[in-house]
Nucleic acid binder design. Structure first.
Lengths: 206, 206
DNA sequence: TTTAATTAATCAAACGTATGATTAATTATT
DNA sequence: AATAATTAATCATACGTTTGATTAATTAAA
């Protein structure tokens, strides 16, 4: 019954997001999943390999949906306008996964995991950087600080996805839940906001 | 010899920043500081209380320097232009401390620590929100999404401070070291960038 | 088509190690 | 001499991992 493997991955994603990788014991995980402790080693070999399997699973399932970035136009403004909602959808489809990645990426331990995480995150980052560079080269964008513009862009989503429930409550007022209508709400606000900020920042004034 | 207490705080800050709170054992800490394990309990009572002492120490030393935000003008544009460099200086004076806070703030464990962290972070956040609200009310700023504008602003610094060395290397090219000239470099870039982004976003177009 | 052999899945228990914390004894300082 | 600071030793608990046994399911041999 191979869907118990999947159940372990899902529970692990939840617990890692809430309590971190170090903060989640495989005993907690097994108990939450209603399974025996040994199943983790049986399916994955070790706790760390379970993490790697999680990254593998989530990022491959994401790649399926996303396909190649739309290259149908070379206009950086349009490419940006197309990329933003696509990225937002990617994030909001797996908020817990990205919360885990961003947090573990801020650590300086377990170098093998670090490499995997960095690879996964940087794949996205480079799509965005390409657009910025092209736009600046073509004179369609102002000569902004490209690195920090990327930091601002990805920082926005990191901040939003990473905040704990109580931080959300106290910082944003609005709850950040799992339910679909909440997500739709945030999706639209986020897309609008990111596009506004980026366009105001990048486009030369009339 | 009370500066051994301080030495413990400093080493703890370093190790927590690198490996996280959970990922740092009090044995590692004692060994790094060249002290006996029991000194942690002697000075602080427990590992968790040591963390609280660290927050207490760093945030009080920060409050000294910052004083009340400059209220000499009511012009939101000027207040913003004054707040940004002041915040950037605050962050860059204690990059490791904020790296710790942001990471632990993304967890949903140890509620008591969570409260302390949220309190510490939100104090700054509210300075900024006040300016945004006033600016929008007075019509000096566009009617932006205030919550997400704050997310973008704080997300920028979170992202920059939180990235591990190898993430910095691979994302920004430039190293993010401790040395002073590096810090001066980033300080100026950050201030310029944040002001540019925020002003482009907030100020109504001619 | 029954029976034997093999593989996959699951479990309870135990392993050795690491953890945070405490104790009691010792040394240094005042 | 009394207090403060430091140490080594110890404690109970929690951790990730491994083991050996058991059951269920699948395949091969008769």
């Amino acid at each position: 019954m191979q869907n118990r493997r999947r159940a372990l991955l899902d529970k692990a994603e939840f617990l890692f997001a809430e309590h971190g990788f170090e903060g989640t014991s495989i005993r907690d995980l097994a108990k939450e999943a209603g399974m025996n402790l040994a199943m983790i080693s049986y399916y994955f070999g070790s706790k760390e390999k379970l993490f790697e399997a999680l990254v593998e699973d989530r990022s491959s399932s994401l790649l399926e949906k996303v396909k190649a970035p739309n290259e149908s136009t070379s206009d950086p403004v349009q490419r940006l306008a197309a990329l933003v909602p696509s990225l937002v959808d990617r994030w909001l489809a797996n908020p817990r996964f990205y919360r885990i990645l961003y947090r573990e990426a801020s650590l300086n331990s377990r170098p093998e995991l670090q490499r995997i995480i960095a690879d996964t995150l940087l794949r996205q980052v480079n799509e965005f950087r390409k657009i910025l560079q092209d736009g600046v080269e073509q004179g369609r964008f102002r000569e902004v600080d490209i690195d920090l513009t990327m930091v601002t862009f990805y920082g926005t989503i990191t901040q939003l996805l990473s905040a704990s429930p109580q931080m959300h409550q106290r910082m944003l007022g609005r709850r950040w839940g799992d339910d679909v209508s909440e997500m739709a709400h945030w999706r639209n606000r986020l897309v609008d906001h990111l596009l506004q900020v980026m366009q105001a920042h990048l486009l030369t004034r009339a």
